[in-house]
Amino acid sequence: MNGAVAVYQSGTVIGALGFLFLTQPAVSQHTTSLETMLGTKLFERMPRKMILTDDGEALYSRVVSSVNILESTTNTYYRERNNPTSLVRLGSPNEFFLKKILSYLGEEDYIYRITFGSAHGLC
């Protein structure tokens, strides 16, 4: 997760540490570097919390969906690498898959990688 996003979502630099697995100085430095690069203040620093400025809100609304997609993608990749039994690879002609296989795929915690094509092309 991005440092500034984690700070915003947790409300404090200390709270963001649990998401990021970084030290407090590293998170503070990351946030300050981002503000310097953008040339604007993203947070109002209060004694026990950090509050987004208007510029911080504008930036957050632009990046949050991308950060969430990145986090979801990396989490999925991590699960696949560390639990290979959860990955199921299927190859099938499209019509056969839709008529014969799709109804058997359950809600279990499996990740399906499906490739469509002719039998010859899938070998």
Rank of each mutant, 00 (worst) to 15 (best):
M1D: 01
A4E: 03
A4N: 05
S10R: 08
S10V: 02
G11A: 09
I14Q: 13
G15Q: 10
A16S: 12
G18D: 14
G18F: 09
L20S: 04
L20F: 07
L20G: 02
F21E: 14
F21D: 14
L22Q: 07
T23A: 07
P25M: 14
P25A: 12
Q29G: 02
S33F: 00
L34D: 01
E35D: 04
T36D: 08
M37V: 07
L38P: 01
L38C: 00
L38Y: 01
T40E: 07
K41R: 15
L42R: 03
F43H: 02
F43P: 02
P47V: 11
R48D: 04
R48T: 06
K49Y: 09
M50W: 13
L52C: 02
T53C: 09
D55Y: 06
G56H: 03
G56P: 03
E57R: 15
E57Y: 11
L59T: 02
Y60M: 11
R62P: 03
R62S: 05
R62I: 04
V64M: 06
S66E: 04
V67N: 05
V67C: 03
V67R: 08
V67Y: 11
N68F: 11
I69R: 09
L70I: 12
L70H: 15
L70K: 14
L70T: 14
E71T: 09
E71L: 08
S72G: 04
T74A: 08
T74N: 10
T76M: 15
Y77N: 14
Y77Q: 13
Y78H: 15
R79W: 10
E80C: 09
R81F: 09
N83T: 14
N83P: 06
T85I: 06
S86M: 14
L87R: 13
V88A: 08
R89V: 15
G91K: 01
G91W: 01
S92H: 02
S92W: 02
P93T: 13
N94D: 06
F96K: 14
K99T: 11
K100E: 15
K100Y: 14
I101P: 07
I101W: 06
L102C: 03
Y104P: 00
Y104Q: 11
Y104E: 12
L105W: 04
L105R: 05
G106W: 06
E108Q: 15
E108N: 15
D109I: 10
F116N: 06
F116P: 01
F116R: 05
G117E: 02
S118R: 09
A119D: 05
G121M: 07
L122G: 03
